[in-house]
Amino acid sequence: MNRTIFKRRWFRISVIAVLALAAVLAPLELVPYANYQLTMIAVMGVAILGVNIITGYTGQISLGQSAFLGLGAYVTAYGVTEGWPVPLVFLLAAVIPGAVGLLIALPAVRLKGASIAMVTISLPIIADPLAKRLTDITGGSAGITVQWMSAPEWTGLADDQWRYYIVGAIALVFFVLAWNLTRGRIGRAFAIVRDNEAVATSMGISSYKYKVLAFTIASAYGGVAGFLYLAAVQYMSPATLSFIVGINLLAAMIIGGSASIIGSLFGGVFYVFIPVVAGQIDPSHTPIVYGAALLLILFLAPGGVVTLPRVLRRLMGRRTGRQQQPGGGDDQATESSAGKVTS
């Protein structure tokens, strides 16, 4: 019974409608800090979505997304400080990291597996001292504070609410773009390049071209995330583009769900809330939770949290299968519990 309800189209649409309504109304009720956290989920979700496009969908490991996020944030900080119009700043924050990504990808994607991981891990390691050096633009190690993106008078909103809506709307657009991209011709080409390059070649798909494309798009997503980051935090320092952040972004992507759009959003939730949860005991425990969660996911559900319901259902199914001989009436109960996880 349960299952059929979950599969109905109207049910899904109404769930989405309720969630969308909640997302729109939430900031009006929540305290500013909660709004800030929700905003950060959207920010990191976009950065993780970028990692997903290159690593999850196209199969090329990127440990360097934090460098592009950092570049986007610094471009934004510079543009805003100079008083450029915000749409132009946004465009530059996406295009400049994208162009840098393209220049790196042109030679880098010729490398295989671990070598490309190695090249991408180098990016934050070089970007970090570079950001500290260029004090005029970046404010050096101390970082740079930019006050902008305040709520206009006519909205009657507080700054945190306004930023939530702006960041959320931009993030939504980029999630929809990624959804379309990965489900179209290009997305299918990405998947073939990831699964078997020889097959891709034999089908006339240039894996080189599509890897460069994926890397460029991923870098631009990193830049957009940097723009959103500066909108949400109003502050940027080299710590945000460190290689630990790059590694954590990849980890969050895998935990959320490789090659899954919604998984990237879950990744953002993880990225924002794992430090909070771990911080209940001691903030320095964050890496343990990260590492343990990542390994657990790889062992139990390599497809990420999004595949957990499926994995659980399979496990339940196997267990009830064994129990069926003595009891047999267990089926209904496990089905509904698996159903709960799905919702």
Partner: peptide, 15 residues
Amino acid sequence: TAVIVTVGLLVLFTG
């Protein structure tokens, strides 16, 4: 996957 597993170990052992 192998690279990602060792990256996970890197984070875990540091922690």
